[in-house]
Simulated assay, not measured.
Amino acid sequence: MVPALHHERPIPKMEDVLDGVGFEWRGDGNLHKVLYHLWTITAFSENSVRVLLNGATGTGKELLAKAIHQFVCGDPGAVYVTNCANLNPETAAAELFGASKGAYTGQQGERMGVFQMASDRNATLVLDEVHMLAPAVRTMLYRALHERTFTRMGDPSRMLEFHGHVVSAASSSLDGMIDDGSFPQDLLSRLSQTDDVHIPSFDARDSAHRSLVIEYGFDHWLQNGMQRDPAVEEALLQVKFPGNIRDLRSFVEQLAAYARRDAHLAGDSTKASVTMQNFTDVRAQPRWQNISSIQESPVSSPVHAIVSPTSLHAPLAIATLDELEANHVRSTLIALGWNKSKVAAALGIERGTLDRKMKRWGYVRPEEA
C-alpha cells in the first residue's frame, strides 16, 4: 500500500529552490536526480531524508543543504547546522544528543542536543565536516540514523525518537578514508540514501564563477553607494580563488576598502569608485600574491578580453570606452545566462537599450547563433 502524500504541494522546481538560497550551480544532471529522489522519499513514504555532500571548503555545501531542506520540506522549517570539526571531543555527544544534569564535569542542568531540536519531520540537521567526529560519537550517530532513536549522555534508559532529515557534508573523500580504515563503511551507508553529491570547486563552475563575481560585486558595491570600473569585474573573472566563495567575498570587500581610502584622500568620501588601481593594490598584497589565474576559453565576440588572463599584474591594455562597455555587457550576459531582463536590471539600463547595444556589437544568444 502506497502511503499518503506527506506534502500536499506541487513538485518543486529545482532552479527556483536553488536560486532561493543563492546556490549558483546546476550540476551535471546528477543533482537533479538526487533532489527528486529525495522528494519522492518524503512525499510517498514515512522515511526522512539522508544525503551526503562532498566538496572543498567554501564551495557552498551549507547553501545546498538548505536548498535540499526547502526542496523536500516545502516550507521554511528549522535548519540546524553543526560543524563537527568545532565540537569539543569531551562534550561532542552532549552537543549532538543532549545530556542530563551532571552527565559530565561542569554540566549544571538539562541540555538539549541538536538531534532533539531537529527531531521533527519538518526539520533538517546539517552535519558539516562529519568525518571529523570522534569514533565513539560516530557509533552513536550510526544508531541514530539506523534505528531513528538516540539517548542522551547520562540518561541511557530514556530512548528518544528522531524523525528529522540529515544532510551530512565532508571536505575530504570518505571513500579514501574508508580505504585507509579511518572511517567506517557501515556509517557511510547510513549517511546517504542516494548518490553522494560532489560540489566542484568555485573556479571549476564557470557559470557560477561569472555570476557570483558580477552579482556579488554589484550587490556589495552598489549597496555601499560605490561606482566601479567595468574592467575590474573582467579582472575578477580571471582570478582563481582557492578559498572559493569566502575568498571572493574577502577580495571584493578589500577592493571596496581601498576605494573608500582613495575617496577619503581625495577629500570626498561620498564618491568612492572601485578602480583597476585598487585591484592592482589588493592583488599585490601577500594574501593574494600566489593565487593563480583561470585560462578561459575564448568567447565568440567582436571584442576580446581587455585583461590578460595570464598576467593580472600587467598594465591594463589601452581600449576605447565603447570596447570597455561592450566587454562588460558581454560578461554580464554570460554570467546571467543571457537573461536580458536580469542583465538590463544589473546594468541599470532599459531592456530596449540593451537590445540596441547587443545588435550594434553583434551579440546573440549562443543557441541562436
Rank of each mutant, 00 (worst) to 15 (best):
H6M: 11
H7T: 02
H7C: 03
E15C: 03
D28M: 08
D28Q: 08
L35M: 11
W39F: 07
A43H: 14
S45V: 03
A56S: 13
T59R: 03
Q70I: 02
V81D: 10
T91M: 09
A93C: 01
A94T: 02
K101V: 13
K101N: 06
Q107V: 14
E110T: 11
A134V: 09
R138T: 14
R138N: 14
Y142H: 14
M153C: 14
P156A: 01
M159L: 14
E161H: 15
G164A: 10
S171F: 10
Q185N: 03
L188R: 15
L191Q: 04
L191K: 05
Q193W: 07
V197D: 08
H198E: 09
I199V: 05
H209F: 04
S211M: 11
G217S: 12
N224S: 04
M226K: 06
R228A: 11
R246I: 00
L248M: 07
S250N: 10
S250I: 00
S250P: 01
K271E: 11
P286T: 09
V299S: 08
A305K: 04
P309F: 09
P315L: 07
A317L: 10
A319D: 10
A326M: 04
H328P: 02
H328A: 14
R330A: 12
S341P: 00
A344Q: 09
A344M: 07
A346H: 09
G352F: 07
Y363K: 03
Y363P: 03
V364S: 13
